[in-house]
Design a protein around this nucleic acid. Structure first.
Lengths: 183, 183
DNA sequence: TGGAGACATGTCAACAGTGGAAGGTAAGCT
DNA sequence: AGCTTACCTTCCACTGTTGACATGTCTCCA
């Protein structure tokens, strides 16, 4: 139930409407905690019922600006400092690795190669983003930068792991051929 | 909808009952694609309705052994080779990083330190598991080893990143103190 | 023979996440 | 004045995930 805390976290730096929050979710938070419009509005409703946020102002077009309350801030702090993060999540990429034996050698190689390439593309994309940020064109908070660095390292490790696994696959699958060569 | 493919993947190497599958989910697949008993049994039912698996044999205590069908195998192959894996998932650990500014310097440090330590513990645990596997006491498939290697590298990168972020935090938060020293 | 423990399945309520439809208001442009 | 575009919210149906409860059988062993 972290959508709730994502919303509280965003509201902790100032009031915003559901629409404003949606923009943030689509941009900076998209890779960390994606959320859709219907999820956001209903979560804001629940948060208001629970007293963690309140409508601070109403604007044109039915706009409602939500502000975090003291109770909300307390809840956020509690989650940040007391609740243990989940160590890891589901990964359909890794799930496929378990079943790679179902494919023939060529297909398995192709899969790992594909993963390495995708990770490499992501790595290059993030590196570019870091360049842009470094030039100061599009400032990012210290914490945004930390998340960016995480993404960069994560992409690199995935790329390198996939390349390693591909070599490993060759090492495993070729002994029979080698024996044939020698026999 | 990968639970379906996890089940198909497991059944691809031989028939099994819901109970058997549950054991596998609790052990080797727990970190990659956790699933509960209720999920498993209902998924098996849906899979059977869709013709991807069939009851191959019935045993004592109402046991039903499911076997994958040709259609099921085709579906699994399709998913393995044609469907692009989701690049990354939600991370409540990283979500917290975005809101680290809500905490004071000491708390933020503690958070990152905690992450580094948790990752280090996981890394040591997996390294130990790799030792055990290497000794051949508890054999793991090539693919299981690849997944293990992934876990190891992932834990290492998380540990190192958290340590880096902690130093980064010091670098950012201390300039004011330094100015005070000089002034 | 009686109890513990593993084996085995089924069902239900609640919550979380996805995708899309519907409906309405304000601002800016021509 | 009329049009378009951006702004803004609500509701709904469906799927996925979790946890708990209910139910019963077989094997072993004291």
């Amino acid at each position: 139930m972290s959508l709730r805390h994502a919303v509280l976290g965003l509201l902790s730096s100032g009031p915003a409407s559901g629409y404003d929050l949606l923009k943030i979710f689509e941009l900076s938070l998209a890779n960390v905690w994606p959320a859709t419009q219907s999820q956001l509005y209903s979560e804001l409703g629940r948060l208001a019922d629970a007293g963690f946020v309140a409508v601070a102002a109403e604007g044109p077009r039915g706009r409602k600006e939500y502000a975090i309350t003291d109770a909300g801030r307390a809840e956020l702090r509690h989650w940040m400092t007391e609740v243990e993060p989940t160590p890891f999540n589901r990964s359909d990429m890794l799930l496929r690795v378990f079943f790679l034996g179902e494919l023939d050698a060529e297909e398995a190689r192709a899969y790992l190669r594909g993963r390495a390439e995708a990770a490499d593309r992501r790595h290059r994309g993030l590196a570019e983003l870091r360049e842009v940020v470094a030039k100061g064109d599009d400032p990012l908070s210290v914490y945004g930068l930390m998340a960016l660095e995480w993404g960069l390292r994560f992409a690199a490790v995935q790329r390198d792991w996939a390349a390693w696994a591909e070599r490993e696959l060759d090492r495993i699958r070729t002994p029979e051929d080698r024996r044939e060569d020698q026999g």
